[in-house]
Amino acid sequence: MKTENQKAWLFVLPVLFLVAFNALVPMMTVVNYSVQETFGNNQFFWQGLDWFEQILRSDRFHAALGRQFLFTATILAIEVPLGIIIALSMPRQGIWVSVCLVLMALPMLIPWNVVGAMWNIFALPKIGMLGYFMNDVLGVSYDMTQDPLAAWITVVAMDVWHWTSLVVLLCYAGLMSIPDAYYQAAKIDGASAWSVFRHIQLPKMKTVLTIAVLLRFMDSFNIYTEPFVLTGGGPGNSTTLLSIDLVKIALGQFDLGPAAAMSLIYFAITLLVSWVFYTLMTKDDRR
């Protein structure tokens, strides 16, 4: 006879404890803030869904969200194809493999705020190498502290420099897992280089590419440190992405209620878009 008892729950407790402290409790604190108003002194007043309504109607939020989507779409449109191209042109064997892998991994090993500081100095007019080169050698007016377009280009270039390697490494791993037999079969069939890419390499890379796109989406959508150090959201509000705006509201203005409501909306959007991406990209497999 099978005896049933509730001892198994004991084994779940440690994980429950961990998850509670690193996710549930902070999350619930945010939920708590989002429905209340505080003026300090630990005094709270019930506010209901007012903050949510206010955020969703605010032009400032719409603008930041628009910039955020534009930024993420731009870097995905550059990093994914570029990553695939670099992965395809990397050597498959020999000593250069490890050289390439190390070179690729380097940008990702640098702390985020250092990346921001590096690019800041690099791009400053007069002082920075890039700034000097653009303005004084090429004669192109380039000043990311004044010109919103220059600031945008610099932020995008920095992200591409920092994170394309991730796409490259994932794609390269996918490519390396394709047995030679596939390439031989294609050669015997007389398939062109494009066909090999379209019918062998791309389908075989699909799983890792899905992961790469998801990771890059989530990371870029939540990006804070690098643009904050590089431009601080300026000039004006031109590079104020969602998270920068959020920190401005929460810590700059100390509006905890609206900031908490905005965090939850932000979180919901990230979750929703990730889910849509994932569903679209794995549609074929589940059919």
Binding site: A185, S195, H199
Partner: peptide, 30 residues
């Protein structure tokens, strides 16, 4: 590709996202 030969491997080598029909037809299409 100009020798007009075929090769069947020990591993099962087929184009992953093509149907069986497309797989069999692929060298003829080329």
């Amino acid at each position: 590709q100009k020798r007009n030969i075929s090769l069947v491997h020990q591993f099962f080598v087929n184009y992953p996202h093509m149907t069986v029909f497309e797989n069999i037809a692929s060298p003829l299409r080329v």
